[in-house]
């Protein structure tokens, strides 16, 4: 009986703690929502199988116990049953593969993009480079993005702000409703570029380039973290993406280019293309 009670309370706790996040974030892109859909589908499939299997099991535990006078049966094999419970799960999984394959194909879409951004992982920061955005000397608009949380907050000497460890000095800026392609690689060890709200996660591997893409419909600020152990400060290289309307993006690029060119003493000889 005790076993029952504990198990049941365990299964129902998520509902009771609604204030605490228990489920995957839906995210804001078409892909992230498709992924959320897959997640929920496979979750309910598991719940359904679980209800049947554990149902039978707890029924036997309750009714077929020696203390209730149960006498054990002698049956011990049935080819028919074995075939049934090999076949049905197999079919369920085949059915599951269909939508999963569809989403995967969509994720691997290699059609052309509007904006290409080179993302490089370093121990322990990210750098972003806007391909084709020449500063005037052949170099592209590029900058590092570092964690901006003060040490005092980490060492509990100051109160932590709501974006603790998820804030950077220079966020990645991209326009809304444009197809942005991330060309991802690394300088030293393997890192992984992850923005949960876009369902984009790709490893950044030194010497190799990976790509991922996204179209973000909603302007906003989206936060992620490095998702591959990359050494000491792996937990301290967040990713912040600022999505802005297109005109704002164009203005930002011009401004940023000027700012960097000035700081580096470059006279822009080529206007931005």
């Amino acid at each position: 009986m005790r076993f029952w009670i504990i198990l049941m309370s365990l299964l129902t706790t998520p509902a009771a703690w609604a204030a605490w996040d228990v489920n995957m974030r839906q995210g804001v892109t078409e892909i992230s929502q498709a992924v959320y859909g897959l997640h929920m589908t496979i979750f309910w499939v598991c719940v359904a199988i679980g209800v049947v299997v554990f149902g039978v099991m707890f029924y036997s535990i309750y009714h077929h116990r020696k203390s209730r006078g149960a006498v054990s049966d002698t049956f011990h094999e049935s080819t028919k049953l074995e075939i049934i419970w090999t076949g049905i799960p197999f079919l369920i999984l085949v059915a599951m593969c269909v939508p999963a394959t569809k989403v995967l194909i969509q994720m691997y879409d290699a059609s052309d993009s509007d904006i290409d951004i080179k993302v490089v992982g370093y121990q322990w920061k990210w750098s972003y480079e806007y391909l084709g955005q020449d500063l005037g000397n052949g170099d592209n608009l590029a900058y590092f993005s570092n964690l901006s949380t003060p040490r005092a907050e980490v060492y509990n000497e100051a109160p932590k702000n709501p974006n603790y460890l998820l804030e950077v000095d220079e966020p990645l800026v991209i326009p809304a409703n444009k197809k942005v392609r991330f060309l991802i690689t690394a300088n030293d060890v393997i890192h992984a570029f992850w923005v949960p709200d876009f369902a984009v996660k790709k490893d950044a591997i030194p010497g190799f380039v990976n790509e991922a893409w996204t179209i973000v419909p909603e302007p906003g600020i989206y936060r992620g973290q490095c998702a591959e152990l990359c050494g000491e400060a792996h937990g301290y290289m967040p990713i912040v993406v600022k999505v802005v309307p297109e005109d704002e993006y164009v203005a930002w690029v011009d401004n940023k280019k000027q700012q960097i060119a000035q700081a580096r003493g470059i006279t822009p000889s080529v206007a931005h293309r």
């Binding site: 199988i49 299997v53 039978v56 099991m57 029924y59 036997s60 535990i61 077929h64 116990r65 020696k66 149960a70 006498v71 054990s72 049966d73 049956f75 049953l81 074995e82 419970w85 090999t86 799960p89 197999f90 999984l93 599951m96 593969c97």
Partner: peptide
């Protein structure tokens, strides 16, 4: 996904062993 099938078979067999036992 395929490897989950034989894993499932094992679970089903254990549950069926308990069924109509004298536990």
């Amino acid at each position: 996904m395929l490897i989950a099938v034989p894993t499932g078979v094992k679970v089903f067999n254990w549950v069926t062993t308990m069924f109509r036992g004298s536990m």
